[in-house]
Amino acid sequence: MDTRLLLVSHASTPAMRAGRFPADDPLDARGLAEAQAARQRLAIADAAAVFVSPAVRARDTALALGLAATVHTALAEIDYGGWQGRRLADLANEAPQHLAAWLRDPDFAAHGGESFSQLVKRLGEWLDALDGAISEGTTGTTSAPRQNPRNVVAITHAPVIRAALVHALGASPAVFPRIEIAPLSAVELRRSSRGWTWWPASH
Protein backbone atom coordinates (compact mmCIF):
# COMPACT_ATOMS: atom_id res chain seq x y z
CA MET A 1 0.00 0.00 0.00
CA ASP A 2 1.28 3.47 -0.90
CA THR A 3 2.14 5.97 1.80
CA ARG A 4 0.54 9.41 1.49
CA LEU A 5 2.29 12.19 3.41
CA LEU A 6 0.78 15.65 3.80
CA LEU A 7 3.33 18.22 4.96
CA VAL A 8 1.74 21.37 6.40
CA SER A 9 3.71 24.52 7.24
CA HIS A 10 2.85 26.19 10.53
CA ALA A 11 0.87 29.43 10.77
CA SER A 12 2.58 32.82 10.58
CA THR A 13 4.32 34.27 13.62
CA PRO A 14 5.32 37.79 14.68
CA ALA A 15 8.96 36.91 13.91
CA MET A 16 8.11 35.95 10.33
CA ARG A 17 6.17 39.17 9.80
CA ALA A 18 9.06 41.21 11.23
CA GLY A 19 11.65 39.55 8.97
CA ARG A 20 13.37 37.88 11.89
CA PHE A 21 14.90 34.42 12.24
CA PRO A 22 12.61 32.57 14.64
CA ALA A 23 13.27 31.71 18.22
CA ASP A 24 10.91 29.22 19.86
CA ASP A 25 7.98 31.62 19.69
CA PRO A 26 4.32 30.63 20.14
CA LEU A 27 1.62 31.70 17.72
CA ASP A 28 0.01 35.04 18.46
CA ALA A 29 -3.71 35.76 18.09
CA ARG A 30 -3.34 36.40 14.36
CA GLY A 31 -1.50 33.13 13.74
CA LEU A 32 -4.01 31.13 15.79
CA ALA A 33 -6.90 32.70 13.87
CA GLU A 34 -5.24 31.85 10.55
CA ALA A 35 -4.73 28.24 11.62
CA GLN A 36 -8.30 27.88 12.85
CA ALA A 37 -9.58 29.35 9.58
CA ALA A 38 -7.48 26.82 7.62
CA ARG A 39 -8.92 23.87 9.55
CA GLN A 40 -11.90 23.41 7.22
CA ARG A 41 -9.79 23.96 4.08
CA LEU A 42 -7.23 21.34 5.05
CA ALA A 43 -9.94 18.93 6.30
CA ILE A 44 -7.52 16.40 7.80
CA ALA A 45 -9.88 13.67 8.99
CA ASP A 46 -8.44 10.25 8.23
CA ALA A 47 -4.77 10.37 9.19
CA ALA A 48 -3.35 7.27 10.80
CA ALA A 49 -0.41 9.20 12.21
CA VAL A 50 0.15 12.89 12.82
CA PHE A 51 3.62 14.21 13.59
CA VAL A 52 4.71 17.69 14.59
CA SER A 53 7.94 19.61 15.03
CA PRO A 54 9.00 20.22 18.65
CA ALA A 55 8.69 24.00 18.08
CA VAL A 56 5.91 25.71 20.02
CA ARG A 57 4.58 27.45 16.89
CA ALA A 58 4.19 24.09 15.13
CA ARG A 59 2.51 22.46 18.12
CA ASP A 60 0.18 25.46 18.46
CA THR A 61 -0.72 25.07 14.77
CA ALA A 62 -1.49 21.37 15.19
CA LEU A 63 -3.81 22.08 18.11
CA ALA A 64 -5.56 24.89 16.22
CA LEU A 65 -6.11 22.45 13.34
CA GLY A 66 -7.71 19.99 15.77
CA LEU A 67 -4.85 17.49 15.56
CA ALA A 68 -3.39 15.44 18.38
CA ALA A 69 0.17 14.99 17.16
CA THR A 70 3.30 13.11 18.16
CA VAL A 71 6.39 15.30 18.45
CA HIS A 72 9.20 14.14 16.18
CA THR A 73 12.62 15.79 16.35
CA ALA A 74 13.35 15.05 12.68
CA LEU A 75 10.73 17.66 11.81
CA ALA A 76 12.44 20.40 13.84
CA GLU A 77 13.16 23.76 12.27
CA ILE A 78 16.55 24.20 10.62
CA ASP A 79 19.09 25.30 13.23
CA TYR A 80 19.83 28.99 12.64
CA GLY A 81 22.75 28.98 15.06
CA GLY A 82 23.83 32.43 16.15
CA TRP A 83 21.22 34.03 13.90
CA GLN A 84 18.28 32.76 15.92
CA GLY A 85 16.04 35.69 16.85
CA ARG A 86 18.03 38.16 14.68
CA ARG A 87 16.49 40.44 12.06
CA LEU A 88 17.53 39.84 8.44
CA ALA A 89 17.84 43.60 7.91
CA ASP A 90 20.37 43.83 10.75
CA LEU A 91 22.38 40.91 9.40
CA ALA A 92 22.36 42.47 5.93
CA ASN A 93 24.19 45.44 7.47
CA GLU A 94 26.48 43.51 9.82
CA ALA A 95 27.37 40.42 7.79
CA PRO A 96 26.21 40.91 4.18
CA GLN A 97 28.60 38.32 2.71
CA HIS A 98 27.48 35.63 5.13
CA LEU A 99 23.81 36.40 4.56
CA ALA A 100 24.29 36.33 0.79
CA ALA A 101 26.07 32.99 1.05
CA TRP A 102 23.26 31.57 3.21
CA LEU A 103 20.71 32.60 0.57
CA ARG A 104 22.48 30.75 -2.27
CA ASP A 105 24.81 28.09 -0.86
CA PRO A 106 23.16 24.92 0.51
CA ASP A 107 26.38 24.00 2.35
CA PHE A 108 26.68 27.32 4.21
CA ALA A 109 26.88 26.94 7.99
CA ALA A 110 29.19 29.75 9.10
CA HIS A 111 26.44 31.01 11.43
CA GLY A 112 27.16 27.97 13.62
CA GLY A 113 23.91 26.22 12.79
CA GLU A 114 22.70 23.66 10.28
CA SER A 115 23.25 23.93 6.53
CA PHE A 116 20.41 23.27 4.13
CA SER A 117 22.29 20.23 2.79
CA GLN A 118 22.39 18.83 6.33
CA LEU A 119 18.67 19.46 6.63
CA VAL A 120 18.02 17.55 3.39
CA LYS A 121 19.97 14.61 4.79
CA ARG A 122 18.00 14.72 8.05
CA LEU A 123 14.65 14.83 6.26
CA GLY A 124 15.66 12.18 3.76
CA GLU A 125 16.48 9.77 6.54
CA TRP A 126 13.12 10.45 8.19
CA LEU A 127 11.18 10.04 4.94
CA ASP A 128 12.93 6.80 4.08
CA ALA A 129 12.19 5.40 7.55
CA LEU A 130 8.59 6.62 7.62
CA ASP A 131 7.02 3.17 7.80
CA GLY A 132 8.57 2.68 11.22
CA ALA A 133 7.55 6.17 12.29
CA ILE A 134 3.93 5.42 11.34
CA SER A 135 3.81 2.54 13.77
CA GLU A 136 5.13 4.83 16.54
CA GLY A 137 2.90 7.83 15.79
CA THR A 138 -0.54 6.50 16.55
CA THR A 139 -2.32 9.79 17.10
CA GLY A 140 -4.71 11.34 14.62
CA THR A 141 -7.40 13.99 14.69
CA THR A 142 -9.09 14.81 17.94
CA SER A 143 -12.51 14.17 16.45
CA ALA A 144 -12.16 11.35 13.92
CA PRO A 145 -10.98 7.73 14.14
CA ARG A 146 -7.95 6.55 12.19
CA GLN A 147 -8.92 4.93 8.91
CA ASN A 148 -6.07 4.69 6.41
CA PRO A 149 -2.91 3.27 7.98
CA ARG A 150 -0.78 4.93 5.27
CA ASN A 151 -2.18 8.47 5.55
CA VAL A 152 0.34 10.59 7.43
CA VAL A 153 0.34 14.28 8.34
CA ALA A 154 3.33 16.34 9.50
CA ILE A 155 3.07 19.90 10.83
CA THR A 156 6.46 21.51 10.36
CA HIS A 157 8.41 24.46 8.90
CA ALA A 158 8.94 25.89 5.42
CA PRO A 159 12.66 24.96 5.21
CA VAL A 160 11.82 21.41 6.31
CA ILE A 161 9.20 21.09 3.57
CA ARG A 162 11.68 22.45 1.01
CA ALA A 163 14.15 19.79 2.14
CA ALA A 164 11.52 17.06 1.84
CA LEU A 165 10.74 18.13 -1.73
CA VAL A 166 14.42 18.19 -2.68
CA HIS A 167 14.86 14.66 -1.32
CA ALA A 168 11.68 13.31 -2.92
CA LEU A 169 12.61 14.68 -6.34
CA GLY A 170 16.27 13.67 -6.12
CA ALA A 171 17.16 17.28 -6.84
CA SER A 172 20.29 19.19 -5.95
CA PRO A 173 20.03 21.04 -2.63
CA ALA A 174 21.15 24.11 -4.57
CA VAL A 175 17.56 24.57 -5.86
CA PHE A 176 16.29 25.48 -2.38
CA PRO A 177 16.05 29.27 -2.98
CA ARG A 178 13.58 28.56 -5.81
CA ILE A 179 11.04 26.83 -3.57
CA GLU A 180 8.55 29.02 -1.70
CA ILE A 181 6.40 27.59 1.07
CA ALA A 182 3.77 29.91 2.53
CA PRO A 183 2.35 29.60 6.04
CA LEU A 184 -0.36 26.92 6.29
CA SER A 185 0.36 25.58 2.82
CA ALA A 186 0.23 21.84 2.18
CA VAL A 187 2.58 19.71 0.11
CA GLU A 188 1.65 16.12 -0.65
CA LEU A 189 4.23 13.38 -1.18
CA ARG A 190 3.46 9.75 -1.95
CA ARG A 191 5.69 6.73 -1.75
CA SER A 192 5.14 3.66 -3.91
CA SER A 193 7.38 1.06 -5.48
CA ARG A 194 8.78 3.91 -7.62
CA GLY A 195 9.91 5.81 -4.54
CA TRP A 196 8.72 9.25 -3.47
CA THR A 197 6.71 11.44 -5.84
CA TRP A 198 5.29 14.95 -5.45
CA TRP A 199 1.54 15.31 -5.95
CA PRO A 200 -0.43 18.55 -6.23
CA ALA A 201 -2.13 18.88 -2.85
CA SER A 202 -5.92 19.13 -3.07
CA HIS A 203 -6.12 21.49 -0.08
Score class of each variant (00 low, 15 high):
L42P: 01
L42I: 01
A43N: 14
I44S: 04
A45M: 13
A45C: 15
A45V: 14
D46N: 15
D46T: 14
A47D: 10
A47G: 13
A47C: 13
A47E: 13
A47F: 11
A48I: 10
A49C: 12
A49Q: 05
A49R: 03
V50P: 13
V50R: 12
F51S: 02
F51I: 00
F51H: 11
F51T: 03
F51G: 01
F51L: 14
V52S: 03
V52M: 00
V52A: 12
V52I: 12
S53R: 03
S53E: 10
S53C: 09
P54V: 10
A55N: 09
A55D: 08
A55F: 02
A55W: 11
A55L: 15
V56D: 08
V56I: 14
V56L: 13
R57E: 00
R57F: 06
R57C: 05
R57K: 08
A58S: 09
A58F: 06
A58V: 01
R59P: 03
R59S: 03
R59Q: 15
D60M: 04
T61F: 04
T61D: 07
A62C: 05
A62D: 05
A62T: 07
A62Q: 07
A62W: 10
A62P: 11
A62H: 01
L63K: 14
L63Y: 09
L63D: 14
L63M: 12
A64W: 05
A64P: 12
L65Y: 05
L65A: 08
L65N: 03
L65T: 03
L65Q: 01
G66R: 03
L67I: 10
L67S: 07
A68R: 15
A68K: 13
A68C: 08
A68P: 05
A69E: 07
A69P: 11
A69R: 01
A69T: 04
T70H: 12
T70E: 14
T70Q: 14
V71P: 12
V71N: 07
V71C: 11
H72Q: 12
H72V: 07
H72G: 09
H72P: 02
T73G: 11
T73E: 15
T73R: 13
A74W: 08
L75R: 09
A76P: 03
E77Q: 11
E77I: 04
E77N: 09
I78K: 02
D79S: 10
D79H: 01
D79F: 06
Y80G: 04
G81D: 03
G82K: 05
W83D: 01
Q84R: 15
G85C: 06
G85N: 06
G85M: 11
G85S: 08
G85V: 08
G85Y: 04
G85A: 04
R86H: 08
R86C: 05
R86N: 00
R87F: 10
L88S: 02
L88Q: 06
L88D: 01
L88W: 04
L88T: 01
A89H: 00
D90I: 02
D90G: 07
D90Q: 10
L91V: 04
L91N: 02
A92Y: 04
A92F: 05
A92M: 01
N93C: 14
N93Y: 07
N93D: 13
E94W: 02
E94M: 02
A95M: 13
A95W: 03
A95V: 13
P96Y: 07
P96I: 06
P96W: 07
Q97W: 10
Q97F: 12
Q97D: 14
